[in-house]
Nucleic acid binder design. Structure first.
Lengths: 280, 280
DNA sequence: GAGTGGTCTAGACCACTGG
DNA sequence: CAGTGGTCTAGACCACTCC
């Protein structure tokens, strides 16, 4: 074990939310709510739109950690919705760890935690930037080939179907920390080789170029030993401990769309979960 | 690696829910509400009580996987609550993976999955039994001693304070799979050595003997390499991959009450998470 | 005591699944 | 088409915090 311990905390989780902002509501009754800006995601529930609007305000810095939000009754009036609806939006953000609510006291923007919740989905790049690191990426392999059986099964393909197989090395402050190995069905992403994944987010490309949005994923974690090739590329000793994260992602139509086997350096990452009773 | 692969799937998570059933909430309206058993947690929100009631029915087999529940409007009438309140209970169970709801179709008891959600808290014993395995436990070490600094800090103790340091080996079908190493403050648990942790659940003892309930926990996962001692006791080769799960648990008063460092055999466990957009 | 979030009710309309 | 879950509203009372 040679390696320094630059940072130790991290959450897995990947990409995936679109920051639709809401147009402030034409009020009540007949249920209005302008549809938001771009895309045809017009029909999102109001509480989701409000949550996204508030998220924008937090991310843009309009709302800073420690700030108290206006009372619910006031906020609901501002957004032109019922208090219940507003509370649903707040709950969503609270479950993501972005807001803290204290009965009798108020609703506050959370202090940024060192660790993010493992269950919240966010991009590697954004995650690292929030922690003040400079993320990077490097394509190690990019091939169009026929899928191996286990992967084909997971993606619902036959073994004669073509897939893109991509190895991407992720860097933090120039140092390799994560080897992404992912497979996507070629027929869903024609000409995928045109896009530069060393500069762009995979999910961003999927969404903007192909209209594919990842809505959910199932993933698992296992500890594994670094093989020679993996050790070399991640700059650890063979036999070092790595975290293998398998992932099957689904698109908006519930179709499996990406199969990933990511290898994290065990000395640089820790996967954090908060276990709490589910209060909805 | 000599070991067989008896089973591969598992979720971490530990114990913690008490199956309190609801006290007949004195129906504010025309309500009914079946009651069940013990304790005076009378003041739980109605939706929590309903969720626990339904959970009981699922666990007892009154509701079987695949069964369709009555429509929400009917259920809410049965429980004597508003539909919104009932829906909150259903949502809670849905988030735990116990129910599946399909718009237009109905609410169904989920087929038992091989893996449980990583975020849901459940006891090792119960978890294994659900999978048809025979869990066991063996006390490896049981000492009252002064806390080491890092642990004392986590538990909010001074280094002169005494703690119980307990190593417990967990078995599945007689084979060792998990080495639990946990620390609890001695002053909160007087005479703790009287209890037989090879037969009883730690959390069950805490609750019934000391009135301490674990309400939430913060935990992390890291891959590590088996040291000689660990390898021997877990029946793996030195250098094998293990999963280290650190855990800090809090009681009902938000006091840190247990510090754990559990070692899972990497070849026998996989830690699963579902990543999905939070719809509340 | 005033003000906050937490819970609950009653009723409505919508979107989707199914025969 | 009838019936299901999904969303939203209007209004109420409670539990807690803080001055």
């Amino acid at each position: 074990m040679i390696d320094i311990q630059l940072f130790k905390w991290y959450s897995f989780a990947r990409l995936v939310y679109t920051n639709l902002a809401i147009e402030p509501p034409t009020p009540p009754r007949g249920g209005t709510m302008k549809k938001s800006s771009n895309r045809d995601e017009t029909s999102k529930p109001v509480y989701v739109q409000i949550a996204e609007n508030l998220l924008d305000q937090i991310e843009s810095g309009d709302l800073s950690p420690g700030d108290r939000l206006p009372p619910e009754r006031e906020l609901s009036e501002k957004f032109g919705v019922n208090r219940q609806t507003l509370r649903r939006a707040l709950k969503k953000l609270e479950l993501q760890g972005l807001l803290t609510r204290r009965q009798g006291a108020g609703t506050f923007v959370s202090e940024p935690k060192i660790e993010q919740r493992a269950e919240v989905v966010i991009s590697f790049t954004k995650n690292m930037q929030r922690r003040g690191y400079v993320p990077g990426a490097e394509i190690v392999k990019f091939k169009k080939q026929s899928a191996e059986k286990s992967v084909a099964d997971a993606l619902g393909l036959s073994s004669s179907d073509l897939v893109y197989s991509i190895f991407r090395l992720r860097l933090i402050n120039q140092a390799p920390v994560l080897l992404e190995r992912l497979t996507i069905p070629a027929h869903r992403f024609p000409q995928f080789e045109r896009h530069d994944l060393s500069k762009r987010s995979l999910y961003e490309v999927m969404e903007t170029e192909y209209g594919v949005t990842i809505t959910r994923a199932r993933q698992s974690l296992e500890p594994v030993i670094a093989l020679d090739y993996e050790a070399e590329i991640l700059h650890v000793l063979p036999g070092a401990a790595l975290m293998l994260q398998r992932r099957l992602s689904f698109d908006q139509n519930e179709q499996p769309i990406e199969y990933g086997k990511d290898l994290y350096r065990g000395d640089r990452f820790r996967f954090v979960t908060e276990i709490a009773p589910l209060e909805i």
